[in-house]
Lab assay of single mutants.
Amino acid sequence: TTTLTYTDEEEARKAAEELKRRGITFTYTKRGGTWEIRIK
């Protein structure tokens, strides 16, 4: 499992869109002031 952490929502959203485009499965979690993208 790879976890990407972002403090900028815009960056996190761009990363999530890129992963979706590649067909990669991930979970997206907001934790306080950070956003976590966990790639399975």
Score class of each variant (00 low, 15 high):
21 R>W: 04
39 I>C: 03
16 A>K: 04
38 R>N: 10
39 I>M: 04
15 A>K: 13
1 T>M: 13
25 T>Q: 14
9 E>P: 07
15 A>L: 05
15 A>Q: 07
39 I>W: 04
2 T>V: 14
26 F>Y: 07
27 T>F: 06
34 T>S: 10
28 Y>T: 06
30 K>V: 10
27 T>A: 05
11 E>R: 06
40 K>G: 14
14 K>W: 07
33 G>N: 15
40 K>V: 15
35 W>K: 00
18 E>W: 14
4 L>T: 04
20 K>S: 12
11 E>K: 07
4 L>I: 10
36 E>V: 14
28 Y>F: 15
2 T>C: 14
9 E>D: 03
35 W>N: 01
11 E>P: 03
10 E>W: 13
25 T>H: 13
7 T>F: 13
33 G>A: 13
40 K>H: 15
35 W>T: 03
33 G>T: 12
34 T>K: 13
11 E>V: 06
1 T>S: 12
19 L>T: 01
38 R>W: 08
4 L>W: 14
35 W>E: 00
4 L>Y: 14
34 T>C: 07
17 E>P: 00
6 Y>D: 00
3 T>P: 04
3 T>L: 14
15 A>D: 03
29 T>F: 10
13 R>W: 09
33 G>S: 13
27 T>S: 09
3 T>R: 07
10 E>C: 10
5 T>S: 08
25 T>S: 14
11 E>Y: 04
9 E>N: 03
14 K>A: 13
5 T>C: 07
14 K>Q: 11
2 T>H: 11
19 L>Y: 04
21 R>Q: 09
15 A>N: 03
36 E>N: 03
24 I>H: 03
16 A>P: 00
25 T>C: 10
8 D>C: 06
36 E>S: 04
39 I>E: 01
7 T>N: 09
33 G>D: 15
30 K>G: 05
3 T>W: 08
8 D>Q: 07
36 E>G: 01
31 R>D: 06
25 T>W: 12
17 E>T: 09
34 T>Y: 15
21 R>M: 09
6 Y>H: 01
5 T>I: 15
5 T>M: 10
22 R>H: 07
13 R>E: 08
24 I>T: 03
14 K>Y: 07
3 T>D: 03
19 L>K: 00
23 G>S: 03
16 A>L: 10
23 G>C: 04
8 D>T: 13
27 T>H: 05
17 E>W: 11
31 R>V: 15
13 R>H: 07
35 W>S: 01
11 E>G: 05
8 D>H: 07
6 Y>W: 03
7 T>P: 04
28 Y>E: 03
21 R>C: 06
18 E>P: 01
15 A>S: 06
2 T>E: 08
36 E>A: 03
2 T>P: 06
27 T>V: 09
9 E>Q: 07
3 T>N: 04
24 I>Y: 10
25 T>M: 12
25 T>K: 14
7 T>Y: 13
1 T>W: 15
8 D>W: 03
33 G>E: 15
28 Y>L: 15
20 K>M: 13
35 W>M: 02
21 R>N: 09
6 Y>Q: 00
22 R>G: 04
33 G>V: 09
22 R>L: 14
30 K>Q: 13
23 G>F: 03
1 T>R: 06
34 T>P: 02
19 L>F: 10
33 G>H: 13
34 T>L: 15
26 F>A: 02
38 R>S: 13
5 T>D: 02
